[in-house]
């Protein structure tokens, strides 16, 4: 396990490093500025990202580019219907020892890396999908009663293909909740598409320069992640994050005992079956802290919270059939929630 270096990075270091990584990624990835920024926010906040996009929008390339820029170990698992949990975590195999005796030895799976790309995660069975749960939440893997720790930083990026839904298994809510952000990759604009075509079909291949040295990359990233936690947050901002999270919960939910402080938004009550879990609040706050550092501040603000509200809360809302029938998406509801929370804020 890498130790945090003695030299603590400053706020300026953080912002500079962040922008540099961003710049390196954009050598390969054209457009998707917001997606890249959200990806990096999740990385430095210590979370995992679910990337949703139609085929060909650069999901896999984005993850590869990130791995190269960070100069961290990178694994890719193509999820299929016949993928088994042991294919992810690793398994015990019989090997011959030096003395000729045969013994079981644990062979680590692809999960033992810094950056893991779980490509088309919804094509594997729930059993296989759940194999990632422990790794994502607790940074460890248990195989045959033995727990193996993962090396930080551990960053899972799973991609979801929203089309070709036959033979897919939607992610269970519990696993969705473990993703820090859900990032959407939209179709590129025309000007971006021109650049993509130009840069990928010409003789010159763009190469990403690693931002960190391979030896201290993990440690430096961990130090930056540690700095994020040092950002000062006033109680009002924490309360705002909590209020925003609770505002996604419908009033009629049977899991709410005290309805005081719930935002009264009719759209939430009508279209949401289950609101965000406390993990949503944590994601809001950590994401806001990263945003504050990016902005060169040592304190979080309301604007930072609102900036990460969409990727942090959107995938944590379970919508009902009425929402599907009316064509309501989570972004629309988050917008309503933000509006009502701003009114309660009184600014």
């Amino acid at each position: 396990m890498s130790a945090v270096p003695d030299e603590t990075p400053t706020v300026a270091d953080f912002a500079r490093t962040f922008r540099r990584i961003q710049g390196e990624i954009h050598k390969l990835i054209v457009g998707h500025e917001q997606a890249v920024e959200e990806l990096l926010i999740a990385l430095f906040a210590g979370g995992h990202v679910l990337i949703e996009g139609v085929p060909g929008t650069g999901k896999t390339m984005l993850v590869k580019a990130l791995g190269q820029a960070l100069n961290l170990s990178f694994s890719r698992i193509q999820f299929t219907v016949d993928l088994m949990p042991a294919d992810i975590t690793g398994t015990r195999v019989i090997v011959s020892g030096e003395d000729g005796r045969r013994e079981f030895r644990f062979t680590p799976g692809p999960v033992f890396c810094h950056i893991l790309l779980a490509d088309e995660i919804n094509r594997a069975t729930p059993k296989t999908q759940s194999a990632l749960l422990e790794a994502m939440a607790e940074l460890q893997v248990t195989v045959s009663g033995t727990t193996y720790p993962l090396q930080p930083p551990f960053f899972v990026m799973a991609t979801l293909n929203p089309i070709e839904m036959e033979g897919t298994y939607p992610l269970p809510e519990a696993q969705l909740d473990r993703f820090f952000f859900k990032v959407r990759l939209n179709y590129p604009e025309e000007s971006e598409l021109v650049k993509i075509i130009s840069s990928t079909t010409g003789p010159e291949l763009h190469r990403i320069e690693p931002v960190f040295e391979a030896a201290d990359a993990a440690a430096r990233i961990e130090a930056l992640k540690h700095l994020v936690r040092e950002v000062i947050v006033a109680p009002e901002i924490e309360q705002y994050a909590a209020r925003l999270t609770r505002a996604t919960v419908p009033e009629k939910s049977k899991f709410i005992l005290n309805k005081e402080g719930l935002a009264r938004d009719e759209a939430v009550n009508r279209y949401v079956s289950f609101g965000s879990s406390p993990r949503g609040g944590q994601a809001l706050m950590l994401g806001a802290k990263v945003c504050a550092l990016l902005d060169g501040r040592a304190n979080a603000s309301y604007e930072d919270i609102e900036r990460v509200a969409y990727p942090a809360l959107g995938h944590r809302l379970t919508l009902n059939y009425a929402a599907e029938a009316d064509g309501i998406d989570p972004a629309h509801l988050i917008q309503k929630v933000l509006k009502s929370a701003r009114e309660m804020r009184g600014h």
Binding site: I232, V233, A234, P235, E236, I237, A292, D295, R297, N299, A300, S301, Y302, E303, D304
Partner: peptide
């Protein structure tokens, strides 16, 4: 000021 002053006073 992105809540700088309030954070200083509060904390």
């Amino acid at each position: 000021l992105n809540w700088r002053l309030s954070t200083l006073l509060t904390m």
